[in-house]
Structures are given as structure tokens and as C-alpha cells.
């Protein structure tokens, strides 16, 4: 018997549950944009080559264009629509706005979702290709420009907003770090 080519699934997105039937071919990106009217995640290449569709899956950044919607069932999905705290922008969003970390804005939701994860990955002690010594004893260098650039490189920006994006990520990371310190104190 030929297998069924569609399924009814429930997706957990930004704290809401969405139940919908999907064609198995439907990517998470297309489910968000065309079925659930969550168009903040952008389709720049549809091939995992630009990062505009970046969302957080179980708190980790992922390209939603290569994630089948049916395979995303059971995972906690956060999109750009879900990163602000009500009217209060996420520190990364605020820094992008203040420092002009975008021009056309199309790569921006992906850059922001990615940046949020970059700050967390760094805080968790993950090294990057810019890290000279990856041995755990060496620790992970501070989130300086070079580390940010390498870690953000999966997000292309054709307008060339990179310089201010890196500044925005650094500023937001610092703000987040300060908050953590205060929380610890």
C-alpha cells in the first residue's frame, strides 16, 4: 500500500499550538508563511544557503527551509514573531533598530534569530571556527567582532549591513551579559 503523503500535525510555535494538515513536502518555512500567516521568517534561497529563514527549534537556531514541517512536530519552535516580550523588543531587536543593523530588512528576522542563538551558544561555551584553541581547557574567547562574524556567517545580507549587525550583536550580548551578572549578584 502506498504510504500516505500528508499528515495532520500539531506545531508548537511561539507558545501557541497550531493543528493543521500538511503535505509532507511542506517545509516548516512554507507552513509558517503560507499556512499560518507567520511571514516574518523569510525565504531567501529555499536551499539552506542564506539563513533568512532562521528560526529556533528547541532553542537552537535552524534553517526552516530545510526542515520538513511534519518532522518539526513535537519541537518547540520560536520565530521572529515570538522573540519580543509583548511590546518590549528583545535586546537584539532593539540593538538592530538603534544601530541600523539592516537596510532592506529581508534578512533581518533570520539575522536576529541567529544572533539570539549565537549569544546563547557562546554563553554555553561552544567554540567556533574563529576560536584559535578549541580544547576545553583553553576556554572560549570573549564574543568579540571576529567571533561574532564567524558565528553569524550563516546569515547572508546582500545590502551589506554586516558592520552594524556585528555591533548590534556585541551590544546586545553585553546587555544580556550585564543582566546575567545582575541576576547572579
Amino acid at each position: 500500500m502506498a504510504p500516505s503523503t500528508s499528515s495532520a500535525i500539531t506545531l508548537n510555535i511561539n507558545g501557541e499550538k497550531y493543528t493543521l494538515p500538511v503535505d509532507h513536502r511542506t517545509t516548516l518555512l512554507d507552513a509558517l508563511r503560507e499556512r499560518l500567516d507567520l511571514t516574518g521568517s523569510k525565504k531567501g534561497c529555499d536551499q539552506g544557503q542564506c539563513g533568512a529563514c532562521t528560526v529556533l527549534l528547541d532553542g537552537r537556531r535552524a534553517v526552516s527551509c530545510l526542515q520538513l514541517a511534519v518532522a518539526a512536530e513535537g519541537r518547540v519552535i520560536t520565530t521572529i514573531e515570538g522573540v519580543a516580550d509583548g511590546e518590549q523588543l528583545h535586546p537584539v531587536q532593539q540593538a538592530f533598530l538603534d544601530l541600523d543593523g539592516f537596510q532592506c530588512g529581508y534578512c533581518t528576522p533570520g539575522q536576529i534569530c541567529s544572533a539570539i542563538a549565537v549569544i546563547e551558544e557562546h554563553a554555553a561555551g561552544w567554540p567556533s571556527a574563529a576560536t584559535d584553541d578549541v580544547r576545553p581547557e583553553a576556554g572560549v574567547p570573549a564574543l568579540g567582532a571576529e567571533e561574532i562574524r564567524e558565528r553569524m556567517s550563516g546569515n547572508l545580507c546582500r545590502c551589506g549591513a554586516y558592520v552594524s549587525i556585528v555591533q548590534a550583536v556585541a551590544q546586545a550580548a553585553e546587555a544580556t551579559g550585564t543582566q546575567d551578572k545582575e541576576a547572579v549578584a
Binding site: G48, G51, T54, L57, R60, R61, A62, V63, L66, Q67, S114, A117, V118, E121, P127, S128, A129, T131, V134, R151, S153, G154, N155
Partner: peptide, 15 residues
């Protein structure tokens, strides 16, 4: 570790 970090992007490595 370095080889894996040199590949693709943070998003793709997570997947």
C-alpha cells in the same frame, strides 16, 4: 571539532 566547525553554518550544524 575544528573540521566540524569549519563546515556549513551554525544553523546547519544544529540540524
Amino acid at each position: 571539532a575544528q573540521a566540524v566547525l569549519a563546515g556549513a553554518s551554525g544553523q546547519l550544524r544544529n540540524m
